[in-house]
Design a protein around this nucleic acid. Structure first.
Ligand SMILES: [Mn+2]
Ligand SMILES: [Mn+2]
Ligand SMILES: [Zn+2]
Ligand SMILES: [Zn+2]
Lengths: 140, 140
DNA sequence: ATATAACTGAAAAACATTATTAATTAGTTT
DNA sequence: AAACTAATTAATAATGTTTTTCAGTTATAT
């Protein structure tokens, strides 16, 4: 696309079609996909892209703060083009990860720094449970 | 130990020396160790224990709510014998994970359920940054 | 246009986790 | 207390995930 290329340039990252396509995928979805899903989508446009390129690229993007990495117990890392702190909810059955919108959350990085002595860069708030589709169908 | 065996029995889990030792390790530390560290410690007492046993046991303990699993971007899962929700801070350099004590946190599972329609079981709050030892020594 | 440093794709390697299985063990029943 | 049985263990293999390596290609600066 067009705006993704501009974002890469602004971060001083060399622009390649693969990188722009990966950033496009992440900017076009609210699904918080993992590397395999990103790979499958970019493949439609670049059939010869390698999974290793996807791994290397998301790592670069995380380092550059173009995307953020979310981690889930017992699943692969998921990626999000919204880089500001915002709460998520993950379904422990189907693996869906969603933003929680219209939800008042206090972000309290400074008090956490004072309580811990750490230099804190990021706050991650993740709720785990069962989504509307899965909570009825829970075996056991 | 003694109390760990009782905890296993109360959960209806068959008591074995390996299981009691693994629970002891987790109840005796505030380090939030991963499987490899747990394995090395239990090995002192049971030199023939297998890493696969540690994997299976922590999975069983998480399912039974004897321990909780914490996940960190770019690291293995870590385990915690304190099962109630409490905030953590992780050092992105040395991998240390600490509890944040004396820290007022509002736990808001019900509002999150209302905002999402999920049945929520667990809330995880993780701060990422650099610990006192590491924040001075950050290269680049 | 040319140069060059960085990037890609492919494959191998490293690392993490799960599955399999024969022998052992915990907890129960005689 | 001995026997029984189902579950657990240790070892290994299998699987899955992520990183490394490297030869060839490409993006950017000159
Ligand atoms: Mn998000
Ligand atoms: Mn803790
Ligand atoms: Zn679901
Ligand atoms: Zn540190």
């Amino acid at each position: 696309m067009y705006h993704s290329e501009k974002m890469l340039r602004e971060k001083g990252i060399k622009v390649t079609p693969q990188r722009a396509a990966i950033l496009d995928v992440l900017r076009d979805t609210r699904e918080h996909p993992g590397v395999e899903v990103i790979y499958q989508r970019v493949k439609k446009q670049f059939p010869s892209i390698s999974l290793a390129t996807v791994y290397k690229t998301v790592e670069l993007f995380v380092r550059s703060n173009l995307i953020q990495e979310l981690c889930l117990t017992g699943d692969v890392s998921r990626y999000d083009a919204r880089v500001e702190s915002h709460p998520h909810v993950a379904c422990m059955n189907c693996g869906k990860v969603e933003d929680i919108d219209n939800f008042d959350m206090e972000y309290i990085i400074e008090p956490a720094e004072q309580a811990t002595g750490y230099k804190i860069l990021k706050e991650e708030i993740m709720y785990f449970g069962y989504c509307g589709d899965c909570k009825g169908v829970m075996d056991n």
